[in-house]
Design a protein around this nucleic acid. Structure first.
Lengths: 204, 204
DNA sequence: CTACAAAAATGAATAGGTTCAACTTTTATG
DNA sequence: CATAAAAGTTGAACCTATTCATTTTTGTAG
């Protein structure tokens, strides 16, 4: 099933994506023109649009790769989370945050978030929202593991607690991304404040 | 200080805003052209841009009016919140939600949120984010009142609890706005689930 | 190898948000 | 009332994302 056509297609897609990742990070996303991107990726403008529905859709595809990585690292932590509960939660979410600016910058995150809100039906918009779901699911599953191990109260619904936690971490991250000045450290301080309070409620 | 110039300016601004509100709500925001808006408001395209930095900025100005109204209603509730704490919180936030689709539709909210994330520096982008702050502040002050009245535990920091609550209500609202299918009732059900859990933690 | 159909690439044309140099109106001044 | 500066308006031109009719490439059957 590796015909010439399929190989070329995969290669073109790869070229578009890596070129976009490079340009979006180096220059301001808004100033990268599809024409330049196409040229540097050795394809035509029309071809870019054969692979991605909109400019924002390209960006979201890049963000999606980043989130996939973070999810994978999260699974490792889930396999044997540290004690106590507060430490486990802090470890997981801190890692989400620390990793967030590895390949992307704040401007890219801003536009990606904006696009996923404004055009949630575009192919990669859907994909992004699915990833969000998977992040929430991961938090919920961590809560479940902690509960089964007795690190948090048995009478709590893991799904509700997890979804609350996810809302908190997501909103904090959005504030961080929105503000040019806010540092990663400040974001984590905010998180820890809220986590400490929540942890007090959670422990048996 | 009510020179002709100032009166004309105020009138032009009003015409732009009311025309935009009408068109954005009637047609899909994305399909409203500045040219048509300008024409219907009896000004030129250039004038629209003398009053608003971008198309999104016009929309945000409209959303801002809506939020102002909700804030005002919130103040009334703050003056004498019902008992118990769960009821007071539910009342406040339910009202936020109920009012949200009064003048706006989901598409308008989507684009407004997207714009406020992507262009937080535009004049009305700043304004919008300030309004968000004021909403958060209102929730925090309600917590404070409830705490002083003994409806919630005295050892809780109102600012942290309030900011957590605000994060939750904001994220739920975003999910609601993003999804075309989700009904207002479903949003409120979700909220109540989370509020009930939080209230259990809060009561002394 | 040739012919044909399907798939994909192409780039010129389109569309609509945004800018800005030229023009009008308002206000302040003598 | 005349005049000039200040403030504001105007719309044609610009820029760039997106579309789509046309051309090219690839896979397949005879």
């Amino acid at each position: 099933m590796t015909g010439l056509r399929e190989r070329q297609k995969a290669d073109r897609n790869r070229r578009i994506l890596t070129t976009a990742a490079k340009l979006f990070r180096r220059d301001d996303y808004r100033h990268v023109r599809i024409e330049d991107l196409a040229h540097q990726a050795n394809v035509s403008v029309g071809t870019v649009y054969n692979y991605y529905a909109t400019k924002g859709d390209i960006l979201i595809a890049i963000v999606a790769m980043e989130v996939e990585e973070v999810l994978e690292a999260g699974e490792c932590l889930l396999a044997s989370p540290p004690q106590p509960a507060l430490k486990a939660l802090t470890r997981l979410i801190d890692h989400y945050y620390d990793h967030s600016l590895h390949y992307l910058n704040k401007q890219m995150w801003r536009t990606a978030m904006a696009t996923s809100i404004d055009a949630p039906q575009t192919p990669n918009g859907l994909k992004y929202n699915l990833l969000d779901e998977r992040l929430k699911d991961q938090v919920q599953r961590l809560i479940l593991v902690l509960k089964e191990r007795g690190d948090i109260a048995a009478d709590l619904e893991a799904a509700v607690v997890g979804s609350l936690l996810f809302n908190v971490l997501n909103m904090l991250f959005m504030e961080f991304i929105k503000s040019d000045d806010m540092e990663l450290e400040s974001l984590k301080t905010q998180l820890h404040r809220q986590l400490e309070m929540i942890a007090q409620w959670l422990v048996p």
